[in-house]
Design a protein around this nucleic acid. Structure first.
Lengths: 113, 113
DNA sequence: CATATTGGTATCCTATAGGTTACTGATATC
DNA sequence: GATATCAGTAACCTATAGGATACCAATATG
């Protein structure tokens, strides 16, 4: 599908979708923690502190729904659950890199006179 | 400055900065309206409806503070004010394009089984 | 047998984003 | 002289994001 085929309203909608998936105070920090090897709920919690377990739980569900994180239950009784980032999650890299770049430049821009 | 010099915390901070500047329900629609030639407050308002004047006024101030929009007062008494997008605003294009691309693909991804 | 650890949930609270309606004071139009 | 238009502002309300604290049932550890 070509760029030219998108109307402005569609473009806005897609941008809002993207924002919805990755924005919020904790989404990126959580993804990074999992990506770095925190695979248990408790580990992620400790790594992303001071997030509350309530919010962490909710964010993990959102990320799972958006197929960025995979939740695997090994044993329901002994509560052995593991979180990993999905292969699809890597598709976010160019976007996140672009955001890092823009944010870094913007900070310079704003502090200028 | 090289990518490798950034710590994870710095990267997160820059991403949050970027999110803060462009997220919200109306920022992009407002920028697009101005970019398309709505330069008066009333015109932007009509174009971005159903935004309220209260929110529009606040968003324009934010965009101006972030140097994405330029507000020019031609005559204070007769309230002749013009809004234009700044040249700096164009620096957002690669990022927004990336968001459109990702959002479009994501919609497909999520609707898959 | 008591305590800690596991992955969460329940209840309640606060802060922020955004919405609604009404209004301003000046010029321009009918 | 009444009404519309201009660029907003003021006061108030609602909805959502996120925070605080306590708790659960099961297994593991002292």
């Amino acid at each position: 599908m070509k760029d030219k085929e998108l109307t402005i309203d569609q473009k806005i909608k897609y941008v809002q979708d993207t924002l919805f998936v990755i924005s919020g105070k904790w989404k990126l920090p959580i993804l990074i923690a999992i990506n770095q090897g925190c695979y248990r709920f408790r580990d992620i919690h400790r790594s992303v502190l001071p997030i509350s377990t309530r919010v962490l739980s909710k964010e993990l569900k959102d990320l799972e729904q958006n197929k960025l994180v995979i939740r695997t239950v090994y044993d329901a009784l002994s509560k052995t659950v593991e979180y990993t980032v999905s292969p699809y999650c890597k598709s976010l890299k160019p976007l996140v890199d672009e955001m890092i770049k823009w944010g870094q430049n913007h900070r310079r821009k704003i502090s200028e006179k």
